[in-house]
Design a binder for these strands. Structure first.
Lengths: 185, 185
DNA sequence: AGGTATCGAAACCTACGGTAGCGAAAACCG
DNA sequence: CGGTTTTCGCTACCGTAGGTTTCGATACCT
């Protein structure tokens, strides 16, 4: 196992996963603002101080939780249109999962007035997907950033305005519009 | 004048305009989260209690401030494509004004976890423009809502992720993409 | 001048993010 | 098995911000 390089001390196994799950369920139940670190800790069965020992702020906890929830983007082979379609549908589905959209919109809004958190959000969450998309699509950075703005922005705006994820018919329209626009090289 | 129906008491003339201006400059200087009601009141030269006498919450103050800042949408005559183009450029320019984008993104994110504020944001800020667009474009509600999600969502996402409004070249791309999509009835 | 309603100032409450200190628990090692 | 090391849980605490309450001062209208 990986126990050889492990320093002595009290166990820390599985703590991240428990906290991530507790974060999403708490956010799904109470919304982002009422999902306080204390409540998340209680839902995870750990102390608030334990969370602050692992993550430097609530924002970074949420970003890590989102990274865990999203996982790698589906960038397998296929035509350009198929790739774009798969990524948009994947983003829509993930943001529609309980707690994920709320957490995303919440940390996003916190980042608006917190430059340090904005750097974390941009570099840890957006950049990996952006780089992978640049590679998979052969598009320059500004085009991929525009793609992300349109897709994620629309999905989060719907979530924020209505409290519900975007319905399938509108995701279809989003796919059609974006794919048509990116067809022209 | 309108002084006939005015109840007695201390003057309240011009208070709204002063508070709106102070709100935008304070948000532009400090960002949404650090633009506290107390600081806004100080910038306006009024007491915090005065603001809470006029507006029930910080969120509603911001919504009223945004309504004042946006004003009526440009829906004058012209082709369908010209109308869409004008509205998108107008929204981009307004969101790019100092403080407006920050305030919009901030209140939007607050609304994510505050259902009461979400109702205010949706009914007072979004609905008037949505109804006017339905009328001007002859489109059903769900298509106009999709249009708003894409345009406003993309503009706010760019503002939130980078702290800067969307550059003209990307606004051009947004116009091109959206106009092409809505050309097909 | 007198009634009326607002304004300003200060104190106050609650909630939340984040920190400090300490004793206890658990893992590793000899 | 016993000691070492590290983390954990608990409690208390601080700063800040949204929002409320109270009360005296001020300005408008009749």
């Amino acid at each position: 196992m990986t126990s050889s390089a492990r320093p002595p001390g009290r166990p820390r196994a599985g703590l991240h996963d428990v906290v991530f799950a507790a974060t999403l369920t708490t956010v799904a139940e109470l919304g982002y603002a009422r999902a306080t670190v204390e409540r998340i800790a209680a839902a995870a069965g750990v102390a608030k101080t334990t969370i602050y020992r692992r993550w430097p702020s609530k924002g970074e906890l949420i970003v890590d939780c989102l990274l865990d929830a999203f996982g790698p983007a589906p960038l397998a082979g296929g035509s350009r249109a198929e790739l774009l379609t798969a990524v948009i549908r994947w983003a829509a589905a993930k943001i529609g999962e309980p707690g994920v959209g709320d957490a995303f919109a919440g940390v996003f809004s916190d980042a608006v007035s917190d430059p340090a958190l904005r750097v974390v959000l941009s570099s840890r969450l957006q950049d990996p997907y952006r780089l992978a998309l640049e590679d998979a699509l052969g598009e320059p950075e500004h085009r991929v950033l525009f793609f992300v703005d349109v897709v994620v922005g629309a999905l989060l705006h719907r979530m924020g305005m209505t409290g519900e994820p975007m319905v399938d018919a509108d995701v279809d329209a989003l796919v059609e519009m974006v794919v048509a626009h990116f067809r022209r090289q």
